[in-house]
């Protein structure tokens, strides 16, 4: 019974969050400059006609007050009709479904690199504290986090595609296509999170219970896995969860450089084109992803740190 009540509360919370977000997006568009009908026709002709714009505004219902427009949209959504993209005329979920797999693919590949990269950097740096590997990783962190992803992407293309002919420049289709964009997205996040992990590990390594474990004669591997890494992973799980949410939101610059047909580009195009039905759907999807990822991270956090579960 308690479980069902908990789920019901979470669903209610999700509904309130999503309604608030959709209202916010609608209000922002109402306040933002630009007439969607004019933008659509200007995309189709450099010299649109005033009467045609007026006609299209009427057809799209843009002459109504925005409260009326919002309630009309809300009513449709409640009946499962999310509407069509104002620009292409395709159902918004078809638009999202066409780009979603590419984004998920890139996000998961990047996330994999973020997790493995941060674990590698963090562990090496912590166990070789203030020695050459730690210094090298520290320098790499500064360099990687200072590099704009646009520049990094182009450099990777230049060396690995043009000069060494090892990997494809652009596009999607095979495993090699995924390497450069995923690496470009992951690098700065992985090294920064590696620093966070390093700090957490160092903090734990000097704790009394670690000294106690050593004096008890536990093997170094057991001490590392059970007592050091396990406790350091709890805060990392939160960071990884946030990263995954961000990666699933799409990466406009990386998608542009590598001609990756993801959600990031679609979102920017929809915002620029004032394609409100599409923007609403994307924003709500992102919100749902963030809320879900946060729930998963919370659960994982409880698993890794029983104190959190007990307190909560």
């Amino acid at each position: 019974m308690m479980v069902f009540r908990g789920i019901a509360w979470r669903l209610l919370y999700l509904f309130i969050v999503l309604s608030g977000i959709s209202l916010g997006v609608f209000a922002l568009f109402a306040l933002a400059p630009g007439d969607p009908a004019e933008i659509i026709l200007r995309e189709r002709s450099e010299a649109p006609d005033r009467d045609q714009i007026a006609l299209l505004r009427r057809e799209m219902g843009l002459d109504d007050p925005w409260v009326v427009q919002y309630s009309r949209w809300m009513k449709r959504v409640c009946t499962g009709q999310w509407g069509e993209s104002w620009r292409s005329g395709r159902p918004v979920w078809t638009e999202i479904a066409a780009r979603g797999p590419a984004t998920i693919e890139l996000a998961l590949a990047s996330f994999f690199l973020v997790v493995t990269g941060s674990l590698f950097c963090g562990i090496i740096a912590a166990f070789r504290q203030n020695r050459i590997p730690d210094r090298l990783i520290q320098a790499a962190t500064v360099v990687a986090s200072a590099m704009p992803s646009y520049w990094l992407g182009l450099m990777l293309i230049y060396f690995f595609s043009l000069k060494m002919n090892l990997l494809p420049v652009t596009g999607r289709g095979s495993w090699p296509h995924l390497v450069l964009p995923a690496f470009t997205l992951a690098l700065s996040v992985a090294v920064l999170q590696g620093r966070v992990l390093r700090a957490a590990l160092i903090q734990i390594m000097v704790m009394d219970y670690i000294r106690f474990a050593v004096s008890k004669g536990l093997s170094p591997w057991k001490i590392f896995v059970r007592h050091i890494l396990r406790n350091a992973l709890a805060p990392m799980a939160t960071l990884w969860g946030i990263s995954l949410g961000q990666l699933l939101g799409g990466a406009v610059i990386v998608e542009s450089i590598f001609a990756w047909p993801g959600l990031g580009r679609l979102t920017v195009e929809a915002v620029m084109g004032r394609d409100i039905p599409l923007v609403q759907a994307i924003v709500l999807l992102m919100a749902m992803i963030f809320v879900t990822v946060n729930q998963i991270v919370d659960g994982l956090h409880r698993q890794l740190d029983p104190k959190v579960g007990a307190a909560g």
């Binding site: 026709l41 189709r44 002709s45 649109p48 045609q52 006609l55």
Partner: peptide, 8 residues
């Protein structure tokens, strides 16, 4: 349709 004949 205005969407298809933007320039009138």
């Amino acid at each position: 349709r205005p969407k298809y004949d933007a320039a009138g």
